[in-house]
Amino acid sequence: MRRIKKEAIEKKLKELAKDYRIFAPMNGDVKETGGEFEECFPRLSGKCAFLPPEEEILRYKDGKVEETPEDKPIILFGIRPCDARAISLIELAMRDEKFPDVYFLRKKEKGIIISIACKEPGDTCFCTSFGHGPFSTQGSDALLVEKDDYYLVLGNEKFFKLFGEGEEAREEDKEYFEEAKKRAEEKIEKIPVDNLGEKLLSRIEDPVWEKISRKCLNCGACTFLCPTCYCFDIQDLERSWGVSRRRYWDSCMFSIYTKEASGHNPRPTHRERVRNRIMHKFSYYPYLYGEFGCTGCGRCVVYCPVNFDIREVLKILGGSG
């Protein structure tokens, strides 16, 4: 563990804005900044940096296809550990030997993710249920813990090379870290997730889905704010110079998401759509990649207009509620 002066990191971040695109929480959401950031739990998550809401994937110009050129590398700074982990979860789906998602991966490979430990978790956090926590380093190149005018840093070489090494952390720093970590973790509700994937799979035709999903409005708020949801739509836009093919965030909660040209919709009602969202995160994801597709950040709980609480759903379906 190292300790680096806060202002040193803040100053460095502004300097790096020259060669990097800096994404950080600002006015409550993760967005591109000139190196400024705000200490908060952002509403729009860290995925905005690596999977932006709108992104050009190619151009068709003068009868030729052009790949969208790479931009400057990204520094994602000041997000919570849950968001950092979320990006590594998205990476599981994007990394694919046969069909790698180049636009995500090339950003991710050159990018640097720096998270700030979550000393005051919210009431809707349930991150510790998924094998990580408010002080977790998974998915981060560095984890910063605020202490007075210092950051205590658990980081890798990539981080120290850019931001300097600071000094060796003192014994009291380590104690502070452990204590803060313990205190934060204790505040967080744990939801039992043992064998959740199998339990869900065995209840796929259960009538309880109808009950659970009834109040869902099928808006995309949960999926757009979710740090691990990565579904997208691809559309062509006509421009004066040709065609821009872009991808946009899309949501499995929308009825048109799966609606076919013939009018047939394999997931016709809220029941199938909610089921798919839950199953994808807690059954299909573990089946495919060995990890749950949720980090327990609680955004979908907080921002759902009808208070659809995924924690309750997991308790019902996981058999403990």
Partner: peptide
Amino acid sequence: LERRMKCGIGKCGRCNIGPYYVCR
């Protein structure tokens, strides 16, 4: 099978049936 598809390579998400993507 037929499903609505966009990316065709198992990324965009819409064509899954259970854990399988119809496109991939």
